[in-house]
């Protein structure tokens, strides 16, 4: 039961974008950590959220 509630909570967080930064860090660790060319550090939470939000509203995201 507790597992189910946890899974539900994870889905809610994913749906709403609440965990977007954690996902980004995970992606960064998986794809960029061991590549030598990539010496940049990942974006800060604030900067990431800024970019994520601005990007989200560049195109058609809502209709009638």
């Amino acid at each position: 039961m507790l597992e189910r509630l946890k899974a539900f909570w994870r889905t809610v967080r994913r749906l709403s974008g609440d965990d977007a930064y954690e996902q980004y860090l995970k992606h960064f660790a998986e794809h960029h950590a061991d590549s030598l060319a990539e010496v940049q550090a990942p974006l800060s939470r604030e900067a990431f959220f800024k970019e994520w939000q601005d990007k989200k509203w560049k195109g058609i995201k809502r209709c009638c």
Binding site: R13, D18, R45, F48, F49
Partner: peptide, 11 residues
């Protein structure tokens, strides 16, 4: 709130 106070805490 989402931008400055607690960035990214959407919920």
């Amino acid at each position: 709130y989402m931008r400055n106070f607690r960035p990214g805490r959407v919920l």
